[in-house]
């Protein structure tokens, strides 16, 4: 079995250019967590010219809302949520510098177009594998919108965070390629 490639997050241009749809990765470094409610607030902030809770330039954002951590644990179950709900916000965030999105499920054409235009990638984590993924999260800290509870913005430090490239910067799409490869005409 081939060794799975380890890469540092945030991902920078040199690495972004090398990634191809379908490639398995293990991420190490820093990512931010935000889902529905936090995206709505960040989007409004961007539209009003207000600062975001973190520097979005080059950043990696994980679409996730964890279950509560037990005493002594870094975080609870921490798998991806459906990314499509963030599609309305993603093109503007990519235009402002977002370069890595992590979630599950297909993205809208506008998002895929923005990824190609600005050189951003979309990575898939295994949906429902929240217990497994939680093991790769070494630190978790709420940095904004604490009142949103599970939907607050967090900064994570991760190591060996498992994912696969869904959309690369060249328009490659694992969902489309995988489906067309294994589809059987009836």
């Amino acid at each position: 079995m081939a060794q799975v490639r380890k890469v540092k997050v945030p991902l920078w241009d040199e690495v972004l250019r090398e990634l191809r749809a379908g490639e398995e990765l293990l991420l190490e470094g820093v990512m931010y967590v935000a889902r529905d409610a936090a995206h709505r607030r960040m989007f409004e902030a961007l539209e009003q010219g207000l600062p975001l809770p973190f520097d979005i330039r080059g950043a990696a954002v994980y679409y996730m809302g964890p279950s509560p951590a037990r005493e002594g644990s870094v975080i609870g179950s921490a798998g991806p949520t459906t990314s499509g709900r963030m599609d309305a916000y993603a093109p503007l965030m990519i235009a402002r510098g977002l370069r890595t999105m992590i979630g599950k499920g297909p993205r809208a054409k506008e998002v895929r177009d923005a990824m190609v235009q600005y050189g951003a990638v979309y990575l898939g984590a295994v949906g429902g594998a929240g217990a497994l993924i939680s093991r790769s999260i070494r630190k978790s800290r709420v940095i904004a919108y604490e009142e949103l509870g599970a939907e607050a913005v967090r900064q994570l430090e991760v190591a060996d965070f498992p994912c696969v490239v869904i959309n690369d910067i060249y328009g490659g799409d694992l969902y489309e390629a995988g489906k067309s490869r294994y589809r059987l005409e009836s």
């Binding site: 996730m64 809302g65 964890p66 279950s67 037990r70 644990s73 609870g76 179950s77 921490a78 798998g79 949520t81 949906g127 429902g128 594998a129 929240g130 217990a131 939680s134 599970a150």
Partner: peptide, 8 residues
């Protein structure tokens, strides 16, 4: 005893 999925 960690939830299988965070969406409980």
């Amino acid at each position: 005893r960690v939830p299988l999925c965070q969406d409980t």
